[in-house]
């Protein structure tokens, strides 16, 4: 359970938001909305710990995430604006190296299964450079399947995806929530996933 208490964010000399309170429990998801520059991405970066909050606290199961450190990060999966995908490496290599960075070895079989699920069959060994923007995004999303994380924090996960992939991702998030997972995501579109709440910044 992730809970936020009186969170404020200051970028440069501008106060983006202040006194933010919310909680996300198992099976729940939060849709962060707001205009460009309202601080959606900043909020997500605060939540994962890439930025330090100006005021307020972020707690995971009641404990401050700053003190939890890696015990918090173990349960976390963050997909940001940038793909964290290396153009020169193949989809398979990217996925396996990303998993190893999280501390788990990923067998070829499960990595391939994840890529196939996202429609990358036959392109596993191709350098990512040769894939389209949407396909690159799918490589990234395959991590959702391979990393066993309780809390998903996704920044604009639907950009550059076609209709089929959007449905697939929505279904995946649905499964994750049904398993007792949590998700926080930003998106400009309305989301076809039930059980969510909205946070307007």
């Amino acid at each position: 359970m992730l809970s936020i208490h009186g969170l404020s964010c200051v970028r440069g000399e501008r106060r983006l938001f202040a006194g933010l309170d919310f909680a996300v429990g198992p099976g729940e998801w939060l849709h962060v909305r707001g205009e460009n520059g309202a601080g959606k991405t900043s909020l997500l970066r605060l939540l994962v710990g890439l930025m330090a909050p100006a005021e307020g606290e972020i707690r995971w199961n009641g404990e401050n995430v700053r003190t939890l450190g890696e015990d918090y990060r173990r349960h976390l999966l963050f997909l940001g604006h940038h793909g964290a995908v290396k153009e020169e490496l193949s989809a398979l290599e990217n996925l396996q190296l990303a998993s190893q960075l999280d501390g788990d070895a990923l067998a070829d079989r499960s990595a391939l299964a994840a890529l196939h699920r996202f429609g990358l069959k036959g392109r596993e060994e191709l350098p990512v450079r040769f894939l389209s923007a949407g396909q690159k995004r799918r490589v990234l999303l395959a991590r959702l399947v391979t990393k066993q994380a309780k809390l998903w924090i996704l920044d604009e996960p639907f950009t550059a995806l076609d209709v089929k992939a959007v449905d697939m991702l929505s279904a995946l998030i649905g499964e994750h929530l049904a398993d007792g997972g949590m998700a926080i995501l930003t998106s400009h579109q309305a989301m076809p996933i039930p059980g969510g709440r909205e946070l307007q910044l």
């Binding site: 710990g49 890696e70 990060r73 173990r74 940001g80 940038h82 964290a84 290396k86 960075l101 501390g103």
Partner: peptide
């Protein structure tokens, strides 16, 4: 530039080792 550094910071392994 490609966001890998962010993922390294968020890895359960301490950043100093990485």
């Amino acid at each position: 530039a490609d966001g890998t550094l962010e993922q390294m910071v968020l890895s359960p392994t301490p950043l100093g080792l990485l």
